[in-house]
Design a protein around this nucleic acid. Structure first.
Lengths: 148, 148
DNA sequence: AGATAACTCTACTGATAAGATAGACAACGC
DNA sequence: GCGTTGTCTATCTTATCAGTAGAGTTATCT
């Protein structure tokens, strides 16, 4: 699961992407329109500023705007920044690799082999979609009763 | 990320799959060979028995064996059983759907649209692979320096 | 310059869940 | 009936997450 913080981050960035090149957007506007706790959002946006995805302007008429064009911010980037990894196990991460606890040697671990493949497919999908893309609000192929 | 418990579960089931039709395997054997804390494994295996994936035999020469043929236990099944969902957000789960906290109305949530698609692709992949399948220990296409 | 509207930073708190363990109990087989 | 093996429920500990507090910094307007 994505953490609440990651979800807030994505929604905040989407909000800014929708207002790209319209000047700084105030924190309070983002918080109220996106239904994100104000104080928590300050923490989130400050991190995004440090990462360079967002630019802030202080003082009167200040606020936030994206530091890159929406098309250059891919969902994969955001999740990697906030969650550290797209992988489902630490040992299958490509940029934040660590060994799992109480595991077998990595070379013998079949779970790892599977998770590496899965990570790559997930990354490929998330890196195809950017903040500039419209996203179908409902997946077109929802099948009633399917598992998941 | 998968929880430690889910990882232990998968490794334990793989262990049993590798010994399918060789008679019951004792808990201590699984624990030591798979490097899983013994007491924790009792909890895990008891749950699998309740779910029907594993059959237990008590007394002398007791132990555990799979309740279904390895080919009939797919990784997607195991993760759904232990984690509840394959989705990255609660509102994108197909069999354990719940609303996210502090979210926008679901119909307006672009994050949800994306996550629904991702969940379906993940599920498709995990449901193609069963405990009977050999798994490449390293994904063949690992690229040095790739992100993830 | 000063008031004010913004953002920034670090630390803290409270709640929850995860990982792991303990220990009494139940079945099985010789 | 005795040892072996699994079953169940409660508990402990620790880490993480969500969210808050509050003092500090910068920019703008007048």
């Amino acid at each position: 699961m994505l953490s609440q913080k990651t979800r807030y981050t994505i929604r905040a960035l989407q909000h800014l992407a929708d207002r790209w090149r319209e000047g700084p957007v105030r924190l309070d506007a983002i918080a109220s329109e996106q239904n994100i706790p104000r104080k928590f959002l300050t923490v989130i946006l400050s991190e995004m500023v440090r990462e360079g995805l967002v630019i802030s302007h202080r003082g009167r008429d200040g606020g936030y705007e994206l530091g890159l064009a929406p098309v250059d911010i891919r969902y994969g980037d955001i999740i990697r920044l906030t969650r550290g990894s797209l992988a489902l196990v630490p040992c299958a991460s490509r940029n934040a690799h660590e060994h799992c606890n109480n595991c077998l040697p990595e070379a013998d671990c079949r779970l790892r082999g599977l998770m590496l493949t899965l990570r790559d497919e997930t990354a490929a999908m998330l890196d195809r979609v950017s903040l500039a893309d419209p996203i179908a609000l409902e997946a077109a192929f929802v099948v009633e009763g399917e598992q998941g």
